[in-house]
Simulated scan of single mutants.
Amino acid sequence: MRTWFITGSSAGLGRTLTEKLLKRGDRVAATLRKTHALDDLKAEYGDRLWIAQLDVTHIPAIHQVMQDAFNALGRIDVIVNNAGYGLFGSVEEASDDQIRKQIETNIMGSIQIIRAALPYLRAQGEGRIIQLSSAGGQATYPNYGYYHMTKWGIEGFAETVAKEISIFNIGLTIVEPGALRNGFVSNMDSATPMEVYAQTPAGEVRRLIQNNAFPIPGDPEKTAQAIIDSVDVTPAPLRLALGPDAYTAIRSSLVSRLDSLDAQKDIAMSTKVEE
């Protein structure tokens, strides 16, 4: 039996993970903004589900909830950084408040969860961190610029953390799902459209979303199970791409970037200091 700490547990992938883990006999410390959302699971699983209210944009609350969870449960084996906010709109359309919320939730919230957990994981001599990112942490699409910014940013942070904490027997995996059939894409916050973008790639993607024509091939149940299974892999895989769209988009992006880099090799080498 493992004990898991999961942010954003009220719906989507966080809820699916929580249900699966409880069903198999694990313990879950579930954090969410509206605690009543897990009343049904609390009634069914009792003390194996520990619940705390948490908005990951409130940094002092993160540290308090993390302390309370470890005090209540004794040890936590896996930290799942799942809480996220999605903003849909071109870079010119989004409001400052929307941009700020995107950064505070997806970057600052994730950073502070990891910072709050590390002292406890080091003290117990082991642990695993699961950082939810997205295929959009390696590839990009019009209208997702601010979302991509946070995912690319948190991947750079998490990869650095993985190098710093492996010496303490703490593993970290960056999970990169594609589009999941859990309502996340359709429930993203949307910026107010500008007519000037109607006949652009941004407008085309907007119409696909509005017409339910944007492909969403990911199975949330299978995705959650793959994340759970990854914790049994040692050493921890640094990245885990989940979904056919994720694999295809990430591979295409990486190949394109490598081709561009290789084409610039002579230029790069020509700028060295001559001895």
Rank of each mutant, 00 (worst) to 15 (best):
P119Q: 09
H148R: 06
A29F: 08
V28I: 00
G86Q: 00
L172S: 03
D47E: 15
L17K: 10
S133F: 00
D40T: 05
A123Q: 12
G109S: 09
D26C: 04
Y141P: 02
Y85G: 02
A11C: 06
T173Y: 03
T248R: 13
A191C: 06
A123M: 02
I111A: 11
T271D: 12
Y197Q: 07
N169R: 05
T35N: 06
P220K: 12
T18L: 13
N211Y: 04
I51T: 15
D245L: 01
Y247E: 15
P237N: 01
L208F: 07
I113C: 11
V80H: 08
V185S: 04
V185N: 04
F157Y: 15
E126V: 00
G136S: 11
T31C: 13
A117L: 02
R122W: 08
N106S: 08
T31W: 07
E104W: 00
I167F: 15
D232K: 09
D219N: 14
L242S: 08
I59G: 10
G243H: 03
W152T: 05
G243E: 13
L21G: 10
G14H: 06
G8S: 04
I216E: 06
A69F: 11
T7D: 00
E176A: 11
A202I: 03
K23W: 13
L121V: 11
T160G: 12
G145R: 03
Y45N: 08
I6Q: 10
L261P: 00
W152E: 02
R15T: 04
Q199S: 08
Q64V: 03
F157I: 12
E164C: 14
I107A: 09
M66C: 11
Y45H: 14
A37H: 09
G203A: 02
A198N: 14
L87S: 08
A236W: 01
